[in-house]
Design a protein around this nucleic acid. Sequence first.
DNA 1: ATTAAGTTTTGCCTTAGGGCAAGATTTTAA
DNA 2: TTAAAATCTTGCCCTAAGGCAAAACTTAAT
Lengths: 189, 189
Amino acid sequence: MFDQLFHYLNNGHGLSPDQFEVVREFFTLRRLKRKDFLLRQGKICRHMYFVNSGCLRLFTTNTEGQEMTRYFAFEDKFGTALTSFINQEPSFEFMQSVTESEVLEIRQEDYYRLVDEIPEFSSSYRNMLEQAYMTSQQRIYGFQGYSALERLKWLMANHPKILSKLSSRVIASYLGVTQYTLSRLKSEL
Amino acid sequence: MFDQLFHYLNNGHGLSPDQFEVVREFFTLRRLKRKDFLLRQGKICRHMYFVNSGCLRLFTTNTEGQEMTRYFAFEDKFGTALTSFINQEPSFEFMQSVTESEVLEIRQEDYYRLVDEIPEFSSSYRNMLEQAYMTSQQRIYGFQGYSALERLKWLMANHPKILSKLSSRVIASYLGVTQYTLSRLKSEL
DNA sequence: ATTAAGTTTTGCCTTAGGGCAAGATTTTAA
DNA sequence: TTAAAATCTTGCCCTAAGGCAAAACTTAAT
């Protein structure tokens, strides 16, 4: 249950087994069904999640109600509505389980307490921020100035998991095209 | 010359005057002319910059040579090609001074040494990462699923400085439209 | 097993935005 | 102050992608 998290913090950031004994106490297991929400727009995000299995999706809706997906968190990734989590302000994003998932949950106060008290945990937060930032950059540059077909090819090259595991509707909302366009694009590949 | 940086670190992150005496030694002043490059694509980004006056622009070019702008750093902001700065890998982005500018430069090794040794400086880095991340998110959500006109209005509401101070070509490359379209949009406002 | 609910594909037409070229305007430099 | 160089605007036409509706196919639920 905690193996993956231990591996992540120990291998990745040098957290010792003793330190992990402290850390693990703050995490609780949650099993999610397909389409379960972890957070709805307008609510304050009070938890960080570590994905043991399955996949979480972060998305929002525009004025016409179309969904726009920003990020998928697969196994062994931390994921949360980070802006709301940091500022403890109402979230612009929804967070939803795409498939059946198993996640570890930690409360925001506890998370930041660990960041402040354990240098190795702090380093994992810093690393998460750096990664989250760099992923966003790739996203901006991978999309702006490119056609829908180029974006699809970019996704195939950079995030094949997304294409192989998720539904077309969800992929389309990530690519910023309609489901119709995505369907047509596939035949052009 | 160091007033703004001191204010940023002291007011914003509680760095004491004594600590600042140490920090300032690592920064050197650079005066930039309009269009001077601080970094070209393919080079490794070895410095972080603090903008005293003027404006830096971070952008890249797509396969057809069109420029795509991601970020503008105005006065009292840190700016750099962060992905290359973090990984010390060749940069995808160019960094250029848009107007005449005055910046403070610090070397990457020195920057991270200060992050490791001075908790207040570390906190300013963490804050910068958080801000950079949140700005990216706004960018992604402010653009995806919106028309060019809606994006322009978003920019007016959220970054009026960009519209008032910079040229249309540069604004267009930030909005992800051609200069022609931007020109037409302005008449629709 | 059979229905119901959701998802994906495809045809037909519409629309937002791009590209080019020429003219207008502003900025820069001598 | 005037020429030269950018920059910005606008007309005309073109193309990528969207919207709707119906058909084909999947998945879930009884």
